[in-house]
Amino acid sequence: MTDMERTPDTSVEICGVKFKNPIITASGTFGFGKEYAEFYDINRLGGICTKGITKERREGNPSPRIAETPMGMLNSVGLQNPGIDGFIKEDVPFLNSLDTVVIANVAGKTEEDYCYTVLKASSLDCVKMVELNISCPNVKAGGMAFGVLPESVEKITSAVKKHCRKPLIVKLSPNVANIADNARAAENGGADCLSLINTVGGMAIDWKKRKPILANVCGGLSGPAIKPIALKMVYEACKAVKIPIIGMGGIMSSDDVMEFLVAGASAVQIGSANIFDPVAGLNLINELTNLMKKCNINNVREITGSLVI
């Protein structure tokens, strides 16, 4: 076989969980998968990270919840979700039918809420990993309140870890003083893996009306606008900890995927790109394979952390 004919190995393994490729859809941008299954075979994905799940059902914030900003978007959904019991009843049967890694994203208002939901979610067969959402900027109680100070990151991580029956990913906020400190805090608390970054706090104003565009006033910025911030934070977090890292923030192309892997990520999550284009996930997988062929890369794992300074 010539190099051009060989199919490159895109598989990755994180905390003993095998992914077909490093492309995972990010929480909040992919629902529970069902909607996108109408557009392509979502089993092609490395994994799916669910919408943030809380103990009780949540209605979320008032509308408008979205605003387009230069090369990005602001959202303030506010963790609207059916609650863990609604999730189990309405969405788990579909997730059970999938042949891709399902990661349950869990959020909460109190430490007890987090522990309760993490135990229930991590006990499900279809859930292979849990992602702890301590970085949602759009809810008053909980969410980011746990994710700003390194002490609270460590405390919530170690509390949740005791109730988590699957590998625990802690999703970090970029709205912090020093990302390396928070990465170390999560690792010290017992995190098996980190994912970053969540959205960057932001605001959009309609000056003629003298009003914010989002009903919730402020929201979280995502999309290509935040990619340089995300790359820097992934790079810094990778230097600070030994556990694997899933990188995200504005990934739109296979070159973007490679940049995050080079910075040290073992896999990536695709967020806003799903919102801009319903087939973004599939396109990225195909693009990545083609890019690897073109650049004679046989194994995607050899890219992780290959940055030369």
Binding site: F30, G60, P62, S63, R65, N75, Q80, N274, P278
Partner: peptide, 10 residues
Amino acid sequence: CGVGACLVCA
């Protein structure tokens, strides 16, 4: 997203 996944059009 326009396909029912992102919940921004509440």
